[in-house]
Design a binder for these strands. Sequence first.
DNA 1: CTGAAAGCGCTTACAG
DNA 2: CTGAAAGCGCTTACAG
Lengths: 332, 332
Amino acid sequence: MATRDDIAKLAGVSSATVSRVINHKDNVSDELREKVLAAVRELDYRPNINAKGLKTNKTYRIAYIIPDVTNPYYTEIYKGINEYAFSQGYSTLLFQPTAETWYETFFNNPVDGLILAIDLSTPLKQLLRTIKIPVVHQTLYKPDNDPKEFKYKTVSHDIESAVLKIIQLLHGAKHTKIALITKKGENHDMLLKSYIKAMKKYNLPYDAHQIVSYESENYNYFPGYESMIRLIKNRPDVTAVIANNDLTAIGAMSAAAAYGFCIPRDFSFIGINDSVAARYSNPSLSCVKLYKYQQGNISGRMLLDMIADKEVASVEFETEFVLRKSTQGITK
Amino acid sequence: MATRDDIAKLAGVSSATVSRVINHKDNVSDELREKVLAAVRELDYRPNINAKGLKTNKTYRIAYIIPDVTNPYYTEIYKGINEYAFSQGYSTLLFQPTAETWYETFFNNPVDGLILAIDLSTPLKQLLRTIKIPVVHQTLYKPDNDPKEFKYKTVSHDIESAVLKIIQLLHGAKHTKIALITKKGENHDMLLKSYIKAMKKYNLPYDAHQIVSYESENYNYFPGYESMIRLIKNRPDVTAVIANNDLTAIGAMSAAAAYGFCIPRDFSFIGINDSVAARYSNPSLSCVKLYKYQQGNISGRMLLDMIADKEVASVEFETEFVLRKSTQGITK
DNA sequence: CTGAAAGCGCTTACAG
DNA sequence: CTGAAAGCGCTTACAG
């Protein structure tokens, strides 16, 4: 591979000038710039990113930290992040760290900033306090208080309004026994709160069996399947099920079908996310649409602005209800 | 962040000795080794990967090039790659390049080797001829001839035997009109060939309408949905459908259901891959199981061995048929 | 607008 | 077994 010195020699300039041209500094005469660019083309020169990073103390990489690479929810967001980051000369690494590999991964792959789709755990906070790189946090909900020790902004969806809308629609369609399937954890306790708030608002009764909380590493079909079985055992009289995730809802539908129930006659299902899978499930799944690509794109933009020390504000997306075939009585 | 010099000073040794300890060279006395390790612990020292890469001309990164990050097929393989690579101090980048971004992505993110899940196109070959980094190619099929200009090995699945098995099973279950949905392209022409070979072997008739080839950037639900509609229009008498991919099969089932058909009474479906989605579709999907995690893990091992100049041989995996509810008459 | 020079944090022959 | 020193390919104040 050609180095910067080869270019300098071929173009008959100093290597400093080559650097200036490569990095689009404006203080270079047109004549020299042309010579340099010609040499770059001729030798198909590409800067050595290790050398550049060593000097500038930047990595030109950001990381997207997710709980499950095989869940398309995150990889759709990743597309949005990567597209923006790429346009700015940044690469986006995708990590699914476990508790044990987290530190190792992080230090083997230094990055200039982090986009998190996982909870901000205590050890993680500790780490970030030391490292001090900016963080964009993708949550379902706007958290109450932001950490102050490092740059931190959030990108969330307005799930509270979404849940209110769902329960309003179900209520309007004469559903009164509405269940919730959700994952345990900080982020999802908020979903539970929104559910309770909305149920109360419409004077709908709910008890502990109506709320199925699962513990799982990821948000996939299986916990939905298992949760639905629990629900069928405990509360077969329920008529509508809200799931914290599309795949979880599809898993739940799969359990209902396996137990001989007919959807949506016996149970209506509503998912949160609107992934491609929702369109092709049988029956197709009604859901709250989250703007994944957009969320990713804006997260990338925010993080790169934070890295560049620009002022950045947290963002909350509105959601939309998408009516398909898994719900009985809702006509929208 | 602490540098190597800080460690050397604290441990009272030269920086060369620190390097030797960090890189597990054996020619260091236990006494100095202990001192260095203590200093490393005390300062929470992490080597600067840019400096290391600059010196060794390595990046300690490999890339996995896939056509669609949102397809869990590839991300399951990715897990297998990443786990092995990580254990060896390597990171795995995930790229979904388009024709326009391919070069840019590649040069902004130099890597020590490539695992390809895309066709080996002419411009890509050109690039690899210049760069000369080793390549592990994940194909459905063992290709006839390997490129010679760079290190190249393949990891494939024995799809020919798999298709033969499927058609034998369908034939045994009295299916005679068997259709194939597949993507256009080098890799998939081989699937077509296997289909034809097997159909001939069992003396089963087939015509052009029975073979639906779609053109698409990815392997997802949608092309399956559309292909099935074409099939229903042209050959409603078909009783079994083989799809080149699970999600494509689920998309096809979704179309059949939308047109009022009952599965598997009217159509039997068989997918290739056995992703998680296959277990939770309605009905659950019978399919050929591909060993994704294992394929990834071995690909990673092969690539790292090739990078280390060890001898490496191409690998072909056997497949397995998984019986679920989408097929009529097969009892296995 | 341009160049000579120092230095980023490592590794590795070389000498002892 | 250990250290001094050169050098990987860049960037960037500094001087002119």
